[in-house]
Every structure is written in C-alpha cells, then in structure tokens.
C-alpha cells in the first residue's frame, strides 16, 4: 500500500477553515505536486497559483508548516519528514481564495518606496539623451546594487516580516530592498525623493533588523542589509543636508 501524506489546506478567505486531504506520497515530490494532486484528483475547486514549477517566477509562494516558501522548491521529504503538511496562503496579504493572495498592496508599496527608475536627464552618466551609462562593475555602488537586484517579487520576505504584520503601512523588505538598489544606481535621478519616501515612520527605521526576511528569501538576498544601507544613506543626507 502507498504511504499517505496528511495534508491540511486552508480553504476560504480571511474567514475559512482547514480541510484535510490524504495524498499518496511519491519520491521527489514537492509541496506544489501535493497541491496539484489535490486540485486535479480530490477537489477541483481549490485555488492556488503557480507558473514555472522550477523556482523562476516566484508565484507559488505559500506558508508551509508555518514557513513562507516557494512550494515548487519545497521537497516534501525535507519540509515534512513526518508526512504531515499544513499549507496556508502567504501571511500579511489579503487572501483572495484558498491559497491565492492579493499582491496589490505588496506592489503598491514598491511604488511608494520609489521603486521606479527615474533617469537623471542631462548627466553624463544618464544613458538617456546622452551617451551610454558607464558604470564600473567593481565600483562600490554597483556591487551594492548587484547584491540587491535579483529579487523576483515573490513576497516570501514580506510574509516572514513581523513588522509588516504589526504595521500595515510598513513598506516591507522587498520594496525597501528595491529602493536600495536604485539608491546605488548612478544613472538614477530621484535619490532625494526616494530617500524621503523610505525614511517615513513606515519606512526603513521601522525595521528591527532581526532578519526574518533574509532567513527566508529563496534567492538568498539580504533585505536587512539593504535596509541598513538605507538607514545610513538617509541619516547621512540628514546630517549633511544633501542627498
């Protein structure tokens, strides 16, 4: 007889309940495989989100046994050696249905944190209206931007962040990490506005630096370090009076 997994899945919206399913255990099975089995064989009304299945898109993020992660990169043998799984939507975001969350606030906060690149027109390094930007790969700013740039916006860090849970306005690790990569972009012309946007009472100074985001980021980014960088940059701007 095949061994069975005991899977508890959140059904509903903000109000809802866990429903239990028995899913056959397989070799090299991921949590996403388990969810797909439930949706295809046991209950077609289950809603969840995924696309690439190989850890590229970040759309399959959920809370598995209490931890936010990409379900397609979560082997059942590792996250639930006992064969018991509890699967919930990502924390800190509105639930649309079952395991799908509304990412609107998450991305609105990117916009509020000045997450859009604004070319510095007229500067020699602008790359717009002038020559191509010359950014030295080994320069400090370029390396700091590099360290932050691989974010794919999956929301895992945001779900891991307690401050985001306590303060609904907190911009969160991903948006602040994005702002930090732009603060280090020498072609960008919106440094002053961006620093003002991220230093408010729901910005970088609200971060407790306890690294829940860094611990859980599947891309191994370090939003905590980015946020510390923002604190330094805006404090420096405050002291010197220039951005």
């Amino acid at each position: 007889m095949t061994a069975m997994l005991e899977v508890s899945v959140w059904r509903g919206r903000e109000e809802g309940a866990f429903v239990s399913y028995a899913v056959p255990a397989r070799r090299s099975q991921t949590v996403l495989d388990v969810i797909t089995h439930i949706q295809r064989r046991l209950d077609a009304s289950l809603s969840y989100r995924f696309a690439c299945r190989v850890g590229m898109c970040g759309s399959c993020a959920m809370t598995v046994n209490g931890k936010p992660q990409w379900t397609c990169r979560a082997p059942v043998s590792e996250v639930a050696p006992s064969g018991k799984l509890t699967i919930q939507p990502l924390r800190n975001l509105k639930v649309i249905k079952d395991l799908s969350v509304d990412m609107t606030t998450f991305f609105d906060k990117w916009a509020r944190a000045g997450g859009a690149f604004k070319p510095a027109l007229g500067r020699p390094t602008a790359g717009v209206g002038g020559d191509f930007a010359a950014v030295k790969p080994a320069s400090r700013a370029r390396r700091a931007a590099d360290a932050a740039i691989e974010c794919i916006g999956c929301g895992v860090c945001y779900a891991a962040c307690d401050v985001a849970a306590w303060n609904r306005d907190y911009l969160g690790p991903a948006a602040l990490n994005r702002a930090w990569s732009l603060v280090n972009d020498v072609r960008d012309g919106a440094r002053r506005e961006r620093l003002a946007a991220i230093a408010g009472d729901a910005g970088c100074y609200a971060c407790h630096s306890q690294q829940g985001c860094t611990e859980h980021c599947p891309k191994h980014l370090n939003p905590t370090a980015s946020i510390a960088g923002l604190k330094r940059a805006s404090a420096w701007a405050w002291l010197t009076g220039k951005p």
């Binding site: 230093a199 408010g200 910005g203 100074y205």
Partner: peptide, 12 residues
C-alpha cells in the same frame, strides 16, 4: 511626507 521623514531620521 518629507518633514515626517526628516523627523524620523533625526530621532533615529
């Protein structure tokens, strides 16, 4: 917004 940011930065 900007003066709030300045206040937060100063307190920090």
């Amino acid at each position: 917004g900007a003066s709030k940011s300045r206040a937060e930065t100063g307190l920090w």
